[in-house]
C-alpha cells in the first residue's frame, strides 16, 4: 500500500491508536438459547460468534471416542459477506481448515477433557465481519462460549496478534496492518499461568526483535483477559442475583 503510513511520526497508527493499544472490545455471553453455550465478541470491526455444544454423546462413529477423555471438535467458518471481497466458500478451504486445527489444539490444552471420557465437545466459530485478528477474536469468543456452557477449563484462553513496524511492536493488528505484509505473530495465552497455547509467526523477523514482539503480544493478551474477565464476572453476578437464594 504505497503512501499509507502504518505508524506516524507522533506514534499514531492508521486508526488513531497508539502502538500498544487494543481495539475496543465488546462482548456478550448467552446469545442463543438453544445451544449449550454461546458468545459474541466485537474487537474493533471484527465480529465473531461462537457456539458450544456439549459435552454430549459421540455422534457418528463411536469408534472415534477416546476412552479416557473428551474429543474436542471445532469448525471455523467465515460468512461469505464478512470480507471486503466476497468469499466464495464459507469453510472447507485450506485457510479455514488450518484455523480449525489451531482452535482444536488450543482448546484441547485448556479444557479439562479427562473429566468427560467418551463424550464430545463441539466448538463452532462463525466470523461475521473480518477486519483483522480473525483467529484471535475467534479464540476469545470460543473461550467465553465455553465458560457459558459450564465446561471446566484450566484458565481463560486469550489471544492477540502483534506486528513489528519501524522498530516498534504493534499490538492487535487490523486488516490494513495485516495486509501490509510485515511480520505478524499470533499468540494464544493462558493468563494466570503464563502458558502459551499457540504461537504462530508469519513473514520475516530478525530474532533480536522476537522477544519484543512476543512481549507485546503477551501484554495485549493480558489486556484482553481483563476485559473478558469483567464480562464474565458481570454475567455471573447478574445471573446469580436473578436466581436469588
Amino acid at each position: 500500500m504505497a503512501g499509507l503510513e502504518l505508524l506516524s511520526d507522533e506514534g499514531y497508527r492508521v486508526d488513531g491508536r497508539r502502538a500498544g493499544e487494543l481495539r475496543k472490545v465488546r462482548a456478550r455471553m448467552g446469545v442463543f438459547a438453544q445451544a449449550d453455550g454461546s458468545a459474541y465478541i466485537e474487537q474493533g470491526n471484527t465480529k465473531v460468534l461462537a457456539v458450544v455444544y456439549g459435552p454430549h454423546e459421540m455422534r457418528g462413529s463411536r469408534s472415534k471416542a477416546l476412552h479416557d477423555r473428551a474429543l474436542v471438535n471445532c469448525q471455523y467458518s467465515m460468512a461469505t459477506f464478512s470480507t471486503g471481497e466476497r468469499k466464495r466458500r464459507p469453510h472447507g478451504d485450506r485457510k479455514s481448515s488450518e484455523m480449525t486445527l489451531h482452535l482444536k489444539q488450543t482448546f484441547e490444552a485448556a479444557i479439562l477433557t479427562q473429566l468427560y471420557p467418551r463424550s464430545q465437545i463441539d466448538i463452532y466459530v462463525q466470523v461475521l465481519q473480518a477486519d483483522g485478528g480473525n483467529y484471535c477474536a475467534s479464540v476469545n469468543a470460543a473461550t467465553l462460549a465455553t465458560i457459558d456452557a459450564g465446561i471446566p477449563m484450566r484458565d481463560y484462553v486469550c489471544a492477540s496478534s502483534a506486528g513489528f513496524i519501524e522498530d516498534t511492536p504493534l499490538a492487535d493488528l487490523n486488516y490494513v496492518e495485516e495486509a501490509a505484509g510485515g511480520p505478524q505473530v499470533a499468540l494464544a495465552l493462558l493468563p494466570k499461568s503464563d502458558q502459551i497455547a499457540l504461537l504462530e509467526m508469519n513473514s520475516r523477523l530478525h530474532e533480536d526483535h522476537l522477544d519484543q514482539v512476543i512481549e507485546a503480544a503477551i501484554k495485549a493478551c493480558k489486556d484482553i483477559y481483563t476485559v473478558l474477565d469483567q464480562v464474565v464476572r458481570e454475567h455471573v453476578h447478574e445471573v446469580t442475583t436473578l436466581l436469588g437464594e
Binding site: 442463543f32 445451544a35 454461546s38 460468534l49 457456539v51 455444544y53 455422534r59 471438535n73 469448525q75 467458518s77 460468512a79 461469505t80 464459507p90 469453510h91 472447507g92 463441539d122 463452532y124 462463525q126
Partner: peptide, 12 residues
C-alpha cells in the same frame, strides 16, 4: 450457508 451454530448436524 447453514451454519453449524444452528445444529451440529450442519457441520462440514
Amino acid at each position: 450457508d447453514c451454519s453449524a451454530n444452528a445444529t451440529p448436524e450442519f457441520e462440514g
